[in-house]
Amino acid sequence: MSAVTQDTAVRTGRVTRTFIYLVLLLFALFYLLPFFVMLVNSVKPLAEITGGNMMALPRTWTFEPWHSAWSTAQIGVEPTGLKPYFINSIIMVVPAVAISTVLGALNGYVLTKWRFRGDTWVFGLMLFSCFIPFQIVLIPMARMLGLMGLAGSTPGLVLVHVVYGLGFTTLYFRNYYAAFPTELVRAAMIDGAGFFRIFWRIMLPVSGPIAVVSVIWQFTNIWNDFLFGASFGDQDSQPMTVALNNLVNSSTGVKEYNVHFAGAILAALPTLFVYIVAGRYFVRGLMAGSVKG
C-alpha cells in the first residue's frame, strides 16, 4: 500500500511456496466453478444438458439460449424475453443511484460543514435506516406509494430505493467530508461563494473516490433488489430480478436450463461491469474517510 514497501513476509522455502500457491489456485477454481457451469451450459443445446454432464464443454456451440433469454423467452405470460425488464431496471437504477448519491453528498456536506444544533441526532437517525429490514416497511411503503399515486410505477421504485439508500450514502459522504478541512469552506465563504457554489466548486471536485463507493454500493444493491421490485413493480416497471425469477419459475413447458443460465448471466452483467470499471476506486474510497475521520 505505502510507497516505501519493505518485504516483511516470512521467508518460506520453494516447496512451501508452491504448496501455498496450489491451495490458492484450488480455492480460486472452486469459486469460479459456478460461473463456469453457468457459462458453459448457456451455450449448449438443451438436449446436451438434460442428456449428459453439466460440467462438460458443449459439443455443439449455440448462442440461441442467449438470444431466447434476451428477446423471446416466456416471462410470466408474455413471450418478451428479459429485454423490456432489463430496460425497466436501467430506467429505475440510474435515477435512483444518481439522486441518492447527490442527496447523500448534500447531507454529508451539511452535516459536516453547516453544522446546526442537533445535527448529530439527525445523522444518528439517518443511520438507523441502514439497519431497518426491508420486510418491515413493505406495507407502510405500499400505503404511502398508493397515497402518492406512485404505486406500481418506476418513479415509485426510484423513490423507495432513494429513501432506502439515503442512510448509506449520507454515512459515506459525512465521514469523507469530516476529514475535509473546514478552513477551505470558510475561505470560500469569504471569497463570496454561497452554499451551493461551495458544494459545486470546492467539495464535489474532490469527492471522486467516495462518489465511486456510493455509486457502486447503490448500483449493486438496487440492481440486485428483488423484494421491492416484486412488491411495488407492475408489468411496466418490474425490474430484471423479478423477470429472471418469472423466467426460471414459469410452470408451462419444459425447463430450458440453458436459457435460464443465459438469463442469470445477463442479469449479473451490469453489476460486474460497474465493478470492473470503478472497482479499483472502491477500496481507495472506503479507506479515505476512515483513516483520518
Binding site: 470558510r186 475561505a187 470560500a188 461563494a193
Partner: peptide, 26 residues
C-alpha cells in the same frame, strides 16, 4: 476583508491562478 489561513486553505482542485481569482469571480 480577505483572510490568510493557517493551513493556507488553497482549493486543491484549482490551479494557483484559479485559486487567486476565485474571489473576484464570485
Amino acid at each position: 476583508i480577505a483572510m490568510v489561513f493557517q493551513s493556507y486553505a488553497l482549493y486543491p482542485n484549482m490551479t494557483v491562478g484559479q485559486n487567486m481569482t476565485f474571489g473576484l469571480e464570485m
